[in-house]
Measured scan of single mutants.
Amino acid sequence: MAAAAAAGAGPEMVRGQVFDVGPRYTNLSYIGEGAYGMVCSAYDNVNKVRVAIKKISPFEHQTYCQRTLREIKILLRFRHENIIGINDIIRAPTIEQMKDVYIVQDLMETDLYKLLKTQHLSNDHICYFLYQILRGLKYIHSANVLHRDLKPSNLLLNTTCDLKICDFGLARVADPDHDHTGFLTEYVATRWYRAPEIMLNSKGYTKSIDIWSVGCILAEMLSNRPIFPGKHYLDQLNHILGILGSPSQEDLNCIINLKARNYLLSLPHKNKVPWNRLFPNADSKALDLLDKMLTFNPHKRIEVEQALAHPYLEQYYDPSDEPIAEAPFKFDMELDDLPKEKLKELIFEETARFQPGYRS
């Protein structure tokens, strides 16, 4: 834990890192770190609560700039109880001085990944967590956004079992017609939660990839272990087919990539493993919904509104309290091709509203 900075004593240090967030945020305490930044909790002297502050230093890398800009653009436009918001952003007053960006968010005690390492969940908890994931996802999908990296560590939890989806750095506007060349190379989302079509096709992607990830998360809540822990690309596919069985001819016809289709045709026939054999203690309604989410063919996979209306979630289902976005989200430009200098300018502009004396 960093010592509390005395008023006016300059930035606090946390594990050798400068955290320049005073005077409003003090009493910093280390939480963890990701690929390009550290997260601390801090005391907000204005709202009198502890908050989470993520320090991001992305400006050396085009990919990190892209992810940072995506996350900020999306989260500043989203407003939903099951999606983490941005409360404040701290950065230098000029673009030349801006080396880091500090993002202030609600402090959540833990995440689903940490929880599943230590606790076996009751059916009631599984049901409530799944409902909140789908409630947040309904809003995301209504904005025409794909999260693309749903996994237990991106689901934040607090002691009252509130759940918030975080990390929109890989999110995209849904565009089933656009052929994202190089899709697989830039697709760094965790393999275990990846839909089979991501490994088999490169053309376009749809909201059904997020539903697949939610199915993987439900299976993990039922058993405290990942359902498809593939060691590499082909191993991942083999794990999936080992449980779902061989795809039907109709399902194979959806695979545009001939090499991928021929690979699947070359494999020995596998039978589907019954879900109640894998999860003998699970609620039968939970397994019915799991089956509809972990469907090989993305066109037959359940959609988020149908999933919310499934009998497993009937005690929570309330369409009048499951809000959607006001308007579909649009990125003005494809960020993939922009140089990091341009992305830095866009991050600077996007964060201006939090600067003292800002006038829109």
Score class of each variant (00 low, 15 high):
279 F>D: 02
165 I>V: 08
93 P>E: 05
161 C>S: 15
98 M>V: 01
21 V>K: 00
188 V>E: 06
231 K>C: 08
290 L>E: 07
104 V>M: 08
201 N>F: 09
72 I>K: 08
99 K>Q: 13
38 M>Q: 12
88 D>W: 01
194 R>W: 08
298 P>C: 02
323 P>N: 01
31 I>N: 14
262 N>F: 07
67 R>H: 12
102 Y>D: 13
58 P>C: 12
17 Q>E: 05
124 D>H: 05
65 C>A: 12
40 C>F: 13
188 V>T: 08
215 G>T: 02
272 K>D: 02
244 L>T: 03
52 A>T: 11
275 W>Y: 07
61 H>E: 10
304 V>T: 05
3 A>D: 13
206 T>P: 13
205 Y>V: 12
339 P>M: 10
170 L>W: 08
174 A>N: 02
184 L>C: 11
255 I>P: 07
347 I>T: 01
142 S>M: 05
16 G>W: 05
240 I>F: 15
281 N>E: 09
196 P>V: 07
224 N>S: 02
247 P>Y: 07
359 R>H: 10
83 I>A: 03
314 E>C: 04
288 D>L: 06
289 L>A: 04
75 L>Q: 14
299 H>E: 01
71 E>H: 05
121 L>R: 00
138 K>P: 06
69 L>Q: 14
38 M>H: 12
183 F>K: 09
119 Q>T: 05
6 A>T: 13
270 K>M: 14
145 V>W: 05
21 V>D: 06
162 D>C: 02
247 P>T: 14
112 L>I: 02
57 S>F: 15
22 G>C: 06
279 F>W: 03
140 I>E: 09
207 K>M: 15
265 L>G: 04
75 L>V: 07
210 D>V: 14
81 E>N: 14
124 D>V: 14
66 Q>L: 15
268 P>I: 01
204 G>I: 06
250 E>N: 01
270 K>V: 04
239 H>N: 15
98 M>G: 09
326 E>S: 09
235 D>L: 04
193 Y>N: 15
19 F>T: 04
187 Y>N: 14
55 K>H: 12
146 L>E: 00
146 L>W: 07
269 H>V: 08
321 D>Y: 15
22 G>M: 03
355 Q>S: 11
190 T>E: 04
340 K>P: 10
315 Q>A: 05
135 R>C: 13
121 L>S: 04
51 V>G: 14
163 L>A: 02
203 K>C: 11
128 Y>T: 03
358 Y>E: 08
157 L>C: 07
62 Q>E: 09
17 Q>V: 05
117 K>Y: 04
106 D>A: 11
44 D>H: 15
234 L>W: 02
157 L>E: 08
297 N>Y: 15
223 S>D: 10
56 I>S: 15
294 L>I: 02
131 Y>T: 11
13 M>K: 15
79 R>P: 05
125 H>A: 08
111 D>N: 12
239 H>E: 08
102 Y>V: 09
169 G>T: 03
132 Q>S: 13
271 N>E: 06
326 E>W: 08
353 R>N: 04
337 D>S: 07
288 D>H: 00
326 E>Q: 12
286 A>T: 13
315 Q>S: 09
103 I>E: 13
292 K>D: 09
76 L>W: 01
230 G>H: 00
215 G>W: 09
190 T>H: 03
183 F>L: 14
351 T>N: 10
268 P>K: 06
162 D>E: 15
95 I>W: 11
95 I>C: 07
162 D>H: 09
250 E>I: 01
6 A>C: 03
113 Y>W: 03
158 N>M: 01
75 L>H: 08
94 T>D: 10
325 A>M: 06
323 P>V: 02
265 L>R: 06
12 E>K: 12
356 P>F: 02
135 R>Y: 07
213 S>Q: 07
62 Q>C: 09
177 D>C: 06
226 P>M: 08
290 L>P: 08
287 L>T: 04
77 R>A: 03
56 I>E: 15
212 W>R: 14
56 I>G: 15
16 G>C: 10
312 Y>E: 06
154 N>M: 10
7 A>Q: 12
341 E>F: 05
300 K>I: 08
114 K>V: 09
37 G>I: 07
84 I>T: 00
198 I>H: 11
270 K>P: 02
204 G>A: 12
291 D>N: 13
251 D>I: 01
157 L>I: 06
203 K>G: 08
22 G>W: 11
252 L>H: 08
263 Y>D: 03
233 Y>F: 15
89 I>W: 11
284 S>K: 09
241 L>T: 03
287 L>W: 10
52 A>V: 12
98 M>F: 07
129 F>E: 07
247 P>F: 01
153 S>M: 07
196 P>C: 08
74 I>F: 15
112 L>H: 07
213 S>D: 10
102 Y>G: 04
333 M>T: 00
164 K>R: 03
103 I>M: 09
221 M>W: 04
107 L>R: 12
234 L>I: 10
286 A>P: 06
115 L>M: 11
86 I>D: 11
341 E>C: 01
256 I>N: 14
112 L>C: 08
13 M>T: 06
142 S>T: 13
358 Y>W: 07
295 T>R: 05
266 S>P: 00
310 H>F: 04
266 S>A: 05
352 A>C: 07
237 L>F: 08
116 L>A: 04
121 L>M: 14
9 A>T: 12
112 L>Q: 14
217 I>N: 15
198 I>T: 01
329 F>A: 05
307 A>Y: 03
305 E>N: 08
228 F>W: 00
331 F>Y: 15
323 P>K: 07
103 I>A: 10
67 R>E: 13
84 I>R: 15
22 G>I: 01
150 L>V: 02
176 P>C: 08
314 E>D: 13
295 T>E: 07
56 I>A: 15
107 L>D: 12
224 N>K: 14
178 H>V: 08
162 D>T: 06
331 F>D: 06
56 I>D: 15
206 T>F: 07
215 G>A: 10
224 N>Q: 10
281 N>F: 11
77 R>M: 04
216 C>E: 04
288 D>Q: 01
86 I>N: 13
120 H>R: 12
303 E>K: 09
248 S>I: 00
342 K>V: 09
209 I>L: 01
168 F>D: 02
54 K>Y: 02
288 D>G: 00
87 N>E: 04
64 Y>C: 14
267 L>C: 06
315 Q>M: 01
358 Y>G: 11
330 K>T: 00
130 L>C: 13
108 M>A: 07
245 G>M: 06
276 N>L: 04
103 I>N: 14
166 C>L: 09
230 G>C: 14
69 L>T: 11
51 V>A: 03
284 S>L: 11
30 Y>N: 14
343 L>V: 01
85 G>C: 15
42 A>T: 14
293 M>Y: 06
91 R>Y: 01
340 K>D: 02
18 V>F: 12
133 I>L: 13
125 H>S: 02
21 V>T: 13
344 K>M: 14
93 P>V: 01
50 R>L: 09
28 L>S: 04
240 I>R: 00
120 H>N: 14
257 N>F: 12
325 A>L: 11
299 H>S: 05
261 R>L: 14
59 F>W: 08
41 S>P: 07
62 Q>M: 14
54 K>I: 13
218 L>P: 02
298 P>A: 10
86 I>P: 05
2 A>H: 11
37 G>L: 03
53 I>A: 07
139 Y>L: 07
88 D>C: 02
87 N>Q: 01
138 K>V: 09
172 R>P: 08
172 R>H: 02
146 L>C: 01
192 W>M: 12
113 Y>F: 15
336 D>M: 04
347 I>A: 08
211 I>G: 09
84 I>Y: 08
270 K>D: 06
202 S>P: 03
148 R>P: 08
117 K>I: 11
35 A>K: 15
179 D>S: 05
300 K>R: 11
43 Y>G: 07
278 L>C: 08
205 Y>F: 14
141 H>K: 08
292 K>W: 04
252 L>S: 09
356 P>T: 12
146 L>V: 06
93 P>F: 00
162 D>F: 10
234 L>N: 03
121 L>Q: 14
11 P>N: 09
87 N>H: 09
187 Y>G: 00
81 E>Q: 05
330 K>Q: 06
80 H>T: 00
138 K>R: 07
173 V>A: 02
254 C>P: 07
228 F>V: 02
322 E>D: 13
24 R>I: 03
230 G>N: 00
86 I>K: 05
325 A>Q: 01
285 K>S: 09
203 K>E: 13
61 H>G: 01
195 A>N: 08
202 S>D: 10
318 D>W: 05
80 H>A: 01
279 F>P: 01
274 P>C: 07
288 D>E: 15
89 I>F: 14
45 N>C: 13
267 L>G: 00
345 E>V: 14
47 N>W: 13
66 Q>E: 12
327 A>G: 00
153 S>C: 13
13 M>H: 09
313 L>C: 01
115 L>V: 12
27 N>G: 10
22 G>V: 15
109 E>W: 04
189 A>S: 14
134 L>A: 02
116 L>R: 09
79 R>N: 05
70 R>E: 09
257 N>Q: 04
344 K>S: 09
293 M>A: 02
174 A>M: 13
